[in-house]
């Protein structure tokens, strides 16, 4: 009886291992052919319940993309220009035709982000902080998909419902969502072979 879970556990483990090894490598031919140098990151579309989520995620996307060697259009300036031209919400920004975006920004590629999940769930003695982001990079001239990725993180929160009634702890959880979001953005772009390849400003390492 002691080992009655051994077989199911082992088969689940094998399935997971098999799952990892059978993911087909992403075909990056088109990406290397078009090799974007500059990325226009549009404010994310929000599918979460937190209204602050898109701009929290937007502000933290510039650093990893710049450090990968791309020119990233200043997100706050892009947002302002959009709003001054009457495009006020991310959903509308995502609908702007590529040729129009190309005309104004002169970018090589556009990064479309969707915040799928962002927030905390409370149980009586525990809580869970969850962030999920989806991204696709599109060539601005041809409209072809250059890269896409997604990342999801769920971490147990530092408090349960009872403690969350104390405001101080609620603030801690808000901070925790912010940190989990940052880690998720990191996962999204620095995902090894399925992450975003480095750009033209990334220093070539010397042998």
């Amino acid at each position: 009886m002691k080992f009655r879970w051994a077989v199911p556990c082992a088969s689940v483990f094998l399935l997971v291992v098999a799952g990892c090894s059978t993911v087909p490598p992403r075909d990056m031919t088109l990406f290397y052919e078009l090799q974007p140098r500059s990325i226009l990151v549009l404010p994310p579309v929000n599918h979460s319940a937190d209204i602050e989520a898109p701009y929290d995620v937007l502000a933290m996307c510039a650093q990893p993309l710049c450090e990968l060697g791309y020119y990233v259009y200043p997100v706050a300036v892009v947002d302002r220009i959009m709003k001054e031209n009457g495009v006020t919400v991310p959903d509308e920004m995502h609908g702007i035709p590529l040729d129009k975006l190309g005309e104004v920004f002169g970018a090589d590629a556009v990064m479309y982000l969707v915040v799928e999940r962002y927030g905390s769930k409370y149980m009586v003695f525990a809580s869970q902080v969850e962030v999920g982001i989806r991204a696709s990079l599109v060539d601005i001239r041809t409209g072809q998909l250059l890269w896409e990725g997604s990342a999801h993180r769920a971490e147990s929160g530092s408090s349960g419902l009872i403690e969350a009634l104390v405001e101080q702890i609620l603030n801690q959880l808000t901070d925790q969502v912010h940190h989990v979001a940052r880690a998720t953005v990191g996962d999204l772009f620095y995902a090894g072979p399925s992450g975003l390849p480095v750009g033209h400003r990334f220093p070539v390492s010397e042998p």
Binding site: E52, Y55, D56, L58, A59, M60, A62, Q63, C66, E67, G69, P74, V75, A76, D79, R201, F202, P203
Partner: peptide, 18 residues
């Protein structure tokens, strides 16, 4: 090593946006 010195840039952008 980072390519850029980030300093307060992200805090500034984030604060001003949110």
């Amino acid at each position: 090593r980072s390519l850029y010195q980030w300093g307060h840039y992200e805090v500034a952008v984030h604060g001003n946006l949110t």
